[in-house]
Simulated assay, not measured.
Amino acid sequence: MRVRSALMDWIVQRRAERRWTRAARQAPDMTVSDLRRERFKARKLLHSLNELVAVADNRLALPMIGSNAFSKPHGTDWAWRPALWCLPLPSPGMSSAQSKSKLGDELVLFHDCERSELTLRQVRNTREADLAPYGLRMDVFSFDGSFLSVVLDLPEGAVDGLKKKHLIRLNTIVEMEKPLEIFARLNIKHGPNTEQIVRELPLHEDDIVVEFDLAYSNLNEKRIERAWLDLIFENPEMSQVTLRDVTLSRRQRAEF
């Protein structure tokens, strides 16, 4: 039955192709009324075809939607790519974004601009080198504030069993229209205190890696509650920044 159905589909498709090829050849000699009727039919068909092609291009583009594949250091006991870089958001962006605006469930924007001229939006990654299905693009026009950051709340797995002997690694891929500085600040709340470790991203590299070594912190392992990551942008006025990927992983430092 499947063979017969496939054969019938092929026959119908071939007939449709011949019918529209013939109509295209005859178009210059058609009467106005016939041409108007054929144009109406063609437009209806073209609308459906364009919808199919758009969905297929999105789903078949590399990397595949939902992919969580990325390189992890040996000994990794926790790894995470935020959902914004994995799955399509119901609302993919915002303009004139206000401070404390959320994009998805995990990312929050912070700034102190009186008048926001910032846009945030999720973009589809299609480059062969990309492992993350989506990226985050931020456009900044006029900027009258003193700080700009996006904050990612880390899931419970990031702090479950977290010790001072752990290294937390951030990998990201950044595209910029103009040079600027970006800092990553890891925040870990333990009891009434919050431990903060800041690293500047080495933006001259294609695959940007920084590590937060908890051995040099004052972390109280018994009172760890939650963790979050700030990405802080210095002098962002008139710039476009695209974070093609953001991943975090955790491993224990080597014992000597």
Rank of each mutant, 00 (worst) to 15 (best):
R2M: 13
M8Q: 08
D9T: 09
D9Q: 10
V12S: 11
R15M: 15
R15S: 12
R18V: 15
A24E: 09
A24S: 00
P28L: 11
P28C: 03
L35K: 07
R36T: 08
E38P: 01
A42S: 09
L45G: 05
E51T: 07
A54V: 11
A56V: 13
N58G: 12
N58P: 02
R59V: 12
R59F: 15
M64F: 14
S67R: 09
A69C: 08
K72W: 05
K72T: 12
H74L: 15
H74V: 15
W78K: 00
A83L: 11
L84K: 02
L84R: 00
L84C: 02
P88A: 08
S91P: 09
S91Y: 10
G93H: 01
G93T: 03
M94F: 10
A97T: 04
Q98M: 09
Q98T: 04
K100Q: 12
V108C: 02
L109A: 03
F110H: 08
H111F: 05
D112M: 10
S116D: 04
T119M: 12
L120V: 03
L120R: 04
Q122K: 04
R124I: 00
T126I: 11
R127E: 08
A132S: 14
Y134A: 02
Y134C: 00
M138V: 03
V140P: 02
S142A: 11
S142V: 02
G145K: 05
S146W: 10
D153T: 10
D153K: 14
L154A: 01
L154N: 01
P155C: 03
D160W: 12
L162P: 03
L162W: 07
H166G: 00
L167H: 07
I168R: 07
R169K: 05
L170N: 00
T172V: 07
V174P: 02
K178T: 13
L186M: 00
I188R: 03
P192C: 09
T194C: 12
V198S: 09
E205N: 13
I208N: 02
E211L: 05
A215K: 07
Y216Q: 05
S217R: 05
E221H: 03
E221K: 03
E225N: 13
W228Y: 10
L229E: 00
L229M: 08
L231Y: 01
E234D: 14
N235A: 14
N235L: 08
N235K: 11
E237K: 15
S239K: 07
S239Y: 12
T242C: 11
D245C: 06
R253K: 11
A254N: 09
